[in-house]
Amino acid sequence: MSGKTVIARFEQGKETFEILVNSDLAYEYITGKRKDPMSVLDAEEIFKDARKGERQGEEKIKKAFGTTDMATVVDHILKKGDVPITTEQKNRLMEEKRKQIIDIIARNSIDPRTNAPTPALRVENAMNEARVSIDPFKGPNEQVEAVVKKISLILPIKFAKIKINVNIPPEYSNRCYGILKQYGLKSEEWLSNGSLSAVVEFPAGMQTEFYEKINNATQGRAETKILE
């Protein structure tokens, strides 16, 4: 097994909760490449002080985490605590989180001046210009609000949803039904000739992607209308 044993630590109030983990396996878990939190442990214990071998009390564990289930506690420590990683791992993790944040903003936002989707490249450029720093240990969704606040002076952004009425010719209706469900199918009406009239609602930044998929699936014969 590669990687060395390191101490992952979570603090709540005056209490400290530590676990001994394999550094490489812990990194894999943090980045979603590994699913079982128990598989990263080098010792199946929750410590008060791992260096001294002092175990943490069950009552304090339950008070801090709401449970004494080992896997749940380990997962919490790995995701919310301090996990030592190498500089290379930290840089990779920041870049992955950065890409995820850019994708979230681009897919969910529009330019309020034009109501057009915000291209990912414009979001990335604005983040570079604003010198936005990414926390490698926080989830991307947790950081979106702060990032948007920083880049909004450079790039006007509005988070919005869009509702679209779509009319699909009968020869394409079954094929397109799955696409409509992917994009938040709100209502549907199957007409007597087999055509489909539906309403979908999804983040406004995804409308270009939606139009491309529907047009490709219907050879450009779908009729769409944005609803107020």
Rank of each mutant, 00 (worst) to 15 (best):
E189G: 07
A64L: 04
F65W: 02
E145N: 12
N216D: 15
E11Y: 06
L191Q: 14
N165G: 13
K60Q: 14
F65M: 05
I104E: 15
L191T: 10
K186L: 12
D82R: 14
T68R: 13
P140I: 02
K35D: 08
I46G: 10
N216T: 14
V199S: 03
E88M: 00
Y29W: 07
Y211K: 09
L185G: 05
K186R: 15
I85L: 14
R9G: 06
E201R: 12
R131D: 13
T68F: 10
E129P: 00
I101C: 08
Y183Q: 07
Y183M: 11
G220Y: 04
C176E: 00
S39A: 02
V144E: 14
N165R: 15
E212T: 15
A8F: 09
L227K: 08
Q143S: 04
N174P: 10
S109G: 09
I46N: 11
E171D: 08
T218Q: 01
N216M: 14
E88N: 02
N215H: 08
D36I: 01
M206Y: 02
E58F: 13
G32E: 02
G13A: 01
K150L: 09
N108S: 15
R221S: 12
E201Q: 09
K14I: 04
Y183G: 07
I162T: 12
Q100C: 05
I101Y: 07
L196A: 02
N125Y: 15
G32N: 01
N115V: 11
A146Y: 03
M1E: 14
G205D: 07
T118W: 08
E228L: 05
V144G: 08
V40N: 10
E209G: 06
K150N: 11
S173L: 12
V132H: 10
V148Q: 00
A26R: 02
G139K: 14
I7M: 12
D49T: 04
P37D: 07
D24C: 08
E201D: 03
V40Q: 09
K186A: 10
M38D: 11
I102T: 08
A222D: 01
M38L: 13
K62T: 14
A71F: 04
P203H: 12
V144C: 11
R34M: 06
F210G: 06
K4A: 10
G3V: 03
V21N: 01
F137I: 06
D42E: 15
A8T: 06
K186M: 13
S192D: 12
W190C: 03
A116Y: 08
T31H: 07
T118Q: 12
E59I: 13
F137K: 02
I151K: 05
K213I: 07
R9I: 07
E212C: 06
A130W: 12
I30S: 04
I102E: 15
K52V: 07
S197D: 11
K149S: 15
I61P: 14
A26M: 01
R113W: 11
F17E: 00
S109F: 11
